[in-house]
Design a protein around this nucleic acid. Sequence first.
DNA 1: CTGAATCCCCGGAGATACTG
DNA 2: CAGTATCTCCGGGGATTCAG
Lengths: 123, 123
Amino acid sequence: MARSEASPVEHPGEACPLSAFVNIVAGKWAIPILYRLIVTDGPIRFRELQRAAHPITQKELTKQLRLLEARGLAIRTVYAEVPPRVEYEATPVARELIGALEGLADWVRTHRDSLAPGPARLT
Amino acid sequence: MARSEASPVEHPGEACPLSAFVNIVAGKWAIPILYRLIVTDGPIRFRELQRAAHPITQKELTKQLRLLEARGLAIRTVYAEVPPRVEYEATPVARELIGALEGLADWVRTHRDSLAPGPARLT
DNA sequence: CTGAATCCCCGGAGATACTG
DNA sequence: CAGTATCTCCGGGGATTCAG
């Protein structure tokens, strides 16, 4: 398609699927956590996740996991043991993201050097 | 970031590439804008982008575009005309994201219904 | 049309302490 | 170990206005 102005449809709402995506996995940690859940074969414990998504705080990790659970992307399993054990696992729907997320990861690895570290923000 | 980095060990292999990714394209609008730049074949004007990335404000769009430019993901071209015309275009590096981003978009389209709309945040 | 400059609020997210 | 409970800061980002 030459010109992308082909779409005559007015999109008052959120037409762009990627707008929806950033709403679903908003925040600094959602994607890294989700990725870790997905690439992990089987359940993973809270502590392990925290080490993986370094240096996330407990509070943040808990919040993000609950959000992922609420969206049907993660499963939370509590074992009535002592010391406590809670395991998380990606749902089948979440696992379908594996290809795209690895695509992003590959892109970063490939261009890590050439990517201008640039300012995190603009003043 | 971590002000008091007490971690004694450097993490070999650096952090998760996806942590780097969310740092690069942080914010509510970076990914949708980038996607629009990429799927657009050729330059696209400021106004068009604003219409595409739905209810984004001028300020936000300008800021995000400057950030993308600073990171080597977008090219900005100013034409000394009146009325002013400024065109943006994705760089080759940015275009390499096309596959992964469309993967994300497809995932959203596929599961749009089954995805629990859920609360945007947790209280 | 493109964009800079201001004002301002809310919520993301870190630090820290406490609990079962 | 796996969480809550607070406190707090600060910056994202919306609304609005001015400028070239």
